[in-house]
Design a protein around this nucleic acid. Structure first.
Lengths: 204, 204
DNA sequence: GGTAAACGCAACGCTACGTTTCGGAGTGTG
DNA sequence: CACACTCCGAAACGTAGCGTTGCGTTTACC
């Protein structure tokens, strides 16, 4: 019975957050104004400032809330499929939802606000890293992946290419992208069939 | 004799650009103010607006100017060394100069200003792409690299990981990074020694 | 030395942030 | 039902910064 009767405060807060999301979607932080949020949500400016200390904190709250949904965990047959599903989830969210523009607006904030940066890394980057680690560990157990794989670097390669498109190259985030990225990175992760690279422990 | 006597206009312009660079370095676009530039450069605000139509155009001019230096072309023995030198150059510039913070501030501008985005891609992204293509082509001729390599994707993997650190993960851009990235990507670029390739379409 | 271009200075209108004040509407309680 | 308490809405304010204007002064160049 958590959904009884939304009080006036709850309605106001929901309206503020919703309006902020909408205004963030088009225009990013640059075109987001507190007055605009107040007008669109039908709420007084004072009501906004009673809840958040500044425009940045309001935007931040919305962003952090959206960002939670980034990490989705697949459970598939082989490591390749799992990695593709994992990276593909990020590609889809960044390409087809508000997450794309929101992330673009977030970059300079992360650069200047160290507390926000820490929060973002804890809630997003580290989660992704751990998920990659989990997937690779399973791959190692199955004998698909070399045991001395560099998890951190793999994680950076997989998602770096996605964000590079979003932030800089501007090329489309299409469905095939995840598959191409994974297939390009995978050869460096696989157990060397015969030789090619440094020593390898006995296949467990 | 190009360095005769800098006129007042030239001195003013140089002072404006210099002050803009300094203020951009710490604080990014957010803390860059025209009044601040005027004060620091000892120039009247009107003089700034006589040259650039807006604060954004001023910042853009400085950024574009800095960005030109991103692409440095090595000529080394093997493809691995060349790629490491190439990626390492970007790592060094982004990690040790103003380019890092400047790029962080540039991301949201690229997202909203399509003309700026085009300009940036023509001057930076495409140059890097062509350089990667040139290096890989030499590698193909030398027999190091497979002929059907995906140049665009390789370029995105190499530099995406660098920017991912700069923008999101916040990990240091150290000297070893370029080497690690290249060694992780290279296995997917090499000619298959015998066979044993993972799922890969024979070709198109 | 004179003239035209470029600069410096001060003031202005404007937008938006963040604050304050006050009156009134919503909410809970005896 | 009445009362008190809390929260909201409306309006005005001070401040910062953008971009503009007008005018006097300096500089460059003939």
């Amino acid at each position: 019975m958590t959904s009884a009767a939304p009080s006036r405060s709850q309605r106001a807060e929901a309206a503020i957050l919703s309006a902020t999301r909408e205004l963030l979607a088009r225009g990013g932080v640059r075109e987001l104004t507190v007055e605009g949020v107040a007008a669109r949500s039908g709420v007084a400016k004072t009501t906004i400032y009673r809840r958040w200390r500044s425009k940045d904190e309001l935007a931040l709250a919305v962003v952090i809330d959206m960002v939670q949904t980034v990490v989705a965990v697949p459970e598939l047959a082989d490591t390749r499929s799992e990695l593709i599903a994992f990276v593909g989830g990020a590609v889809r969210v960044l390409g087809k939802t508000l997450m794309g523009p929101v992330m673009q607006g977030l970059v300079p904030e992360l650069a200047t606000d160290s507390e926000l940066a820490r929060s973002f890394r804890d809630r997003v980057v580290v989660l992704r890293l751990h998920e990659v680690e989990r997937l690779l560990r399973r791959g190692i157990e199955r004998g698909e992946i070399r045991a001395d794989v560099d998890v951190g670097l793999t994680h950076e390669l997989l998602f770096g290419a996605v964000y590079y498109r979003l932030f800089l190259s501007g090329q489309p985030l299409d469905r095939k992208l995840a598959e191409r990225i994974v297939d390009a990175v995978l050869p460096g992760l696989r157990k060397p069939p015969g030789r090619t690279r440094g020593a390898q422990q006995p296949s467990a």
